[in-house]
Design a protein around this nucleic acid. Structure first.
Lengths: 165, 165
DNA sequence: TGTGGATAGTTCAAATTTTAATTCAAGATG
DNA sequence: CATCTTGAATTAAAATTTGAACTATCCACA
């Protein structure tokens, strides 16, 4: 491992833009979802993931994985969503340990009310600010970064037997 | 306002890559900083911003702004950093209300120890996964998005007299 | 079989973040 | 000057997130 190279001007510009964009974007998106729908972005994501599924349900672990959240964090959020009737828990018949989180009709309805405004805002703030070329380059570049991170995570998990998150 | 347009496949791909990249990246970066240096990424950012300044100090508000954090959140974090001696508070002579957060020598030293590993990881996970073209496109595109968001935030603040955050 | 090691999910306490007041002082208004 | 509004920072309370136990299966295989 050689002497660490600092970031060049251009590299720093990209990294900064990335961090700032995320902060600014989620400041707005979170706030809008909360104000209009009483949902945090995480809750929205949970509902959205569930709705994308054939039976509108997922196991806790899968869901935690899908929304990139810790298991205990998900337990908490599902608890919240259950209290307000947007999600319901169901036990699995084959595996007593497993629990499914299921989107209720009410939850689906709420998601459908929330989605248009949310999507409009994503479009306005993110999509429309970039050219199609830039959008593609971003998807390709970050996609590759994601692939690498997933791969190296899988490796080290396999090597050490550790299971973080 | 017309019927809301859903995201196209390509748009969704970009948006997804963006969200996922941030989550994956910060999972790693946070963990590495915490493990190796006992710092959260926010704390690292605070130290870094302070170090970038001529006198290694900034007013609480400016700093909060710079690291995109709420004022009360910053109060908390500066409290933590102060306890471990990386930062020190100082009152302003002109304005009794104002407080400066100052990087201590110890803080600077800690930052200098932390930076190489952090930068190396940013490079490995983010920079090196993309081509220079992709990096430039990302910086340009997200830069434009940021410009717009800042502008529209400034507008609505001016118009309504509101001061969020 | 029955044991040891993964898995699934929850629980609890501690750390952090958020949100809504609160405290003081500066600046403007009249 | 008296008052009113704004600005800077903190405090207090509530909500959320983290991380380490803990409980209870499931599974492979000796």
């Amino acid at each position: 491992m050689g002497r660490p190279r600092w970031l060049s001007k251009e590299e720093k510009r990209a990294w900064n833009a990335f961090i700032t964009a995320h902060a600014l974007l989620f400041q707005r998106l979170d706030q809008q979802l909360k104000r209009d729908m009483g949902l945090s972005h995480l809750q929205y994501e949970i509902l959205a993931r569930l709705s994308d599924t054939p039976d509108r349900e997922l196991r806790m672990s899968e869901l935690a994985d899908a929304v990139q959240n810790s298991k205990s964090g998900l337990t908490y959020q599902i608890g919240q969503l259950e209290q307000v009737g947007l999600v319901r828990r169901r036990n699995c018949r084959n595996d007593v340990r497993a629990v499914y989180a299921c989107l209720t009709d009410e939850g689906m309805a709420q998601l459908e009310r929330a989605a248009p405004g949310h999507v409009a805002m994503v479009r306005e703030l993110f999509i429309d600010a970039m050219t199609p070329d830039q959008l593609r380059a971003l998807a390709d570049g970050l996609g590759e970064a994601n692939r690498r991170m997933r791969e190296s995570a899988a490796e080290s998990a396999g090597a050490s037997g550790l299971e973080a998150r």
